[in-house]
């Protein structure tokens, strides 16, 4: 039961994202670029930190 709700919830998020992408992509290409770009920038910064954690685990202690 809980899984069904999760799926319905994610489905709604997906629909919203698609709608946003279509509308924003049509009328406000720069706004759309900002949304995608900002999330990307944040995730890449996050990946960099996790990569550093891995480098430490592999024995590289330099800064």
């Amino acid at each position: 039961m809980g899984k069904t709700f999760t799926f319905i919830g994610l489905f709604l998020v997906l629909c919203l994202a698609l709608l946003l992408a279509v509308v924003a992509g049509d009328y406000g290409p720069w706004y759309f670029a900002w949304m995608v770009g900002t999330v990307m920038i944040v995730l890449i910064a996050a990946c960099g930190a996790i990569m550093l954690d891995n480098q430490r685990q592999n024995g590289n202690g330099e800064v």
Partner: peptide
């Protein structure tokens, strides 16, 4: 500092 620097540098380069 190393972690903050890494995150900020990647954030900033893009």
């Amino acid at each position: 500092a190393a972690r903050s620097f890494r995150m900020a540098a990647l954030f900033g380069v893009i």
